[in-house]
Design a protein around this nucleic acid. Structure first.
Length: 511
RNA sequence: GCACCGUUCGUCUAGCCAGGUCAGGACGCCAGGUUUUCAUCCUGGUAACACGGGUUCAAAUCCCGUACGGUGUACCA
């Protein structure tokens, strides 16, 4: 560690929508920055022009907006270390690559992709794997094997070339990862990675090291898939004579079943989103669902995601972003991959939904009503939502639990009819209707008191009466306190529903 | 193939670094309770140290090996 002000970055490639694994990486970076009063940078790594997808960068920014993750520096935000889009930094990378050639840490290579592919194929046929390593580079066309004159000539003729890192032949690189501890690897199993491409752009390896250094990044927190590249990166810092940042490699997010990392396919197959926001592929028009569109609250999404691979060290489960920022620490990040669990995600959403106040929920529910062309009239939507919110995980499920407040049942659930509509139900309900008709003050408390007194007086049995009554009002065995429901729909509607139910269900004959 | 990383209830995980708790919590599931239904809620239950060696009085914890899994091995990031 060091005592410099903490600066971390999230550096996505704009090749499509941001996977939730990427969101988590960004989240951990953000939390780390907040925890240490540092700076969180958003840098766009668009050095591969072939994979650029329009809209991806905007998507990433919108996703962070939705999540509540805000960055301090970066694209659209600015800062003292810009530009923050690597394509706009293009000109500065060449000098770094050439600096490495000057210092003997890199070299020009003139092998064409076609040539290399041919060699790879050959090796494959012999059941070997080709790598451009310390051995193979001696037989290939590069500034290590060619004479100085030949190289100069090739360069002058504008022969396409790449710049490769000259991997030390045999050296043990000792690295430290904040999450995994000490990691060692020998350079003889590593290859001469391309640092600078023939199209004039750097590869990730060069660009990421140069930018992290230039942007004074102190901690690199990224996915585990980068761990195998760590030796290269450490060696690059060394070759440049720069101080390397602290590294932390996060565990992967795994698919809920089977083996392997979570992919978009898993989401489609198992029916859950893999992306924070819905995404429409600009080429194929294919639509991928998002957490936002599926009805998750950002705070539930973030809470769920934060706990996938990290824990607070105590038994707390619920965290706001602020609380996470306070509690977060890299040494509580686990080493092994975490499986995504949809049930837990829903449970978190339920928790946050119940925690919202009724007015807020009502506002979210209103569009659902409008979509169904429901005229709520004078009804107190917040009150209704409050009665049913504990029964749902999502706002979209509110209708299913409250539709009977707005319209009479269109049908009667057969199962419930079978179970609750007994031989004497018709007579009892007919009688109940008369009892209710006498009540002028149709409040929940008043109707309940009156009806219960009537039941007791006639010794009808609470269960029998109430269940049949519920069937007539709701149409099924669901819903909150029945007297609350009839108070909302009113006396007239209550009596009408009883009439209609009596007519449709009729008198059940004794068997 | 080679390299690196990993492996505690079905799932997320605590405990491991500084060996000695009936291996703790949460989701799920099951049962009971509350209730006019369903759901919520409450109570209880179910269920795990991958395997094999070692070190030690004592190992989930330290060491080695095996198995399994993951990632990487592109002029992708």
């Amino acid at each position: 560690m060091n005592d410099k002000p903490v600066r971390v970055r999230f550096a996505p490639s704009p090749t499509g929508p941001l996977h939730i694994g990427g969101v988590r990486t960004a989240l951990y970076n953000y939390l780390f920055a907040r925890k240490h009063g540092g700076t969180f940078i958003l840098r766009i790594e668009d050095t591969d022009q072939n994979r650029f997808v329009p809209g991806a960068e905007e998507y990433i920014i919108e996703a962070f907006n939705w999540c509540g993750i805000d960055f301090d520096e970066g694209v659209t935000k600015g800062g003292d270390y810009g530009p923050y889009r690597q394509s706009e930094r293009k000109e500065m990378y060449r000098q770094y690559a050439e600096q490495l050639i000057q210092s003997g840490h890199a070299y020009y290579a003139f092998d064409t992709p076609e040539e290399l592919n041919r060699i790879r194929k050959q090796f494959e046929e012999e059941k070997k794997t080709f790598t451009y390593d310390t051995v193979q580079r001696k037989q290939l066309r590069n500034s290590l094997t060619l004479s100085e004159q030949e190289v100069t000539e090739l360069l002058h003729n504008d022969t396409p070339y790449v710049i490769r890192f000259k991997m030390p032949e045999e050296r043990t690189v000792v690295m430290n990862d904040e999450i995994r501890g000490r990691v060692e690897v020998n350079t003889k199993v590593l290859d001469d990675k391309i640092l600078f491409k023939s199209d004039g752009m750097p590869t990730y390896h060069l660009a990421n090291i140069a930018d992290d250094h230039l942007m004074k990044v102190t901690h690199v927190i990224r996915g585990e898939e980068w761990l195998p590249s760590l030796p290269l990166h450490v060696l690059l810092y060394e070759a440049f004579g720069w101080e390397a940042p602290v590294f932390a490699h996060l565990p992967l997010l795994l698919k809920p079943d089977g083996k392997g990392k979570l992919s978009k396919r898993d989401g489609d197959r198992l029916g859950f989103p893999v992306f924070p926001l819905q995404w429409t592929d600009p080429k194929s028009g294919e639509v991928s669902r998002g957490y936002r569109e599926d009805g998750y609250f950002p705070e539930a999404f973030i809470n769920m995601l934060a706990l996938l691979g990290w824990n607070p060290g105590d038994e707390r489960e619920f965290f706001t972003l602020e609380e996470l920022s306070e509690a977060f620490s890299l040494d509580k990040v686990s080493k092994s991959g975490a499986r995504f669990d949809q049930d837990k995600a829903k449970w978190f959403n339920h928790h946050y939904l119940v925690g919202k106040n009724n007015e807020e929920l009502a506002e979210l529910f209103r569009p659902v009503l409008e979509e169904k062309n429901i005229d709520a009239g004078q009804k107190d939507i917040p009150y209704i939502v409050g009665l049913v919110k504990e029964r749902v995980n999502f706002v979209s499920e509110l209708w299913e639990q409250s539709c009977f407040f707005f319209s009479a049942p269109e049908s009667y659930d057969p199962k419930t009819v079978k179970k609750r509509w007994k031989t004497n139900s018709f007579d009892q309900m007919t009688e109940l209707k008369e009892v209710l008709a006498q009540i002028d003050d149709f409040t929940s408390e008043n109707t309940e008191q009156t009806v219960k007194a009537w039941i007791e007086k006639n010794e009808y049995g609470m269960g029998a009466v109430m269940n049949a009554f519920r069937l007539l009002i709701v149409g099924a065995a669901k819903g909150p306190h029945l007297f609350d429901i009839i108070a909302v729909i009113g006396k007239e509607e209550t009596l009408a529903r009883i009439d209609r139910g009596l007519e449709i269900l009729g008198k059940k004959e004794t068997v």
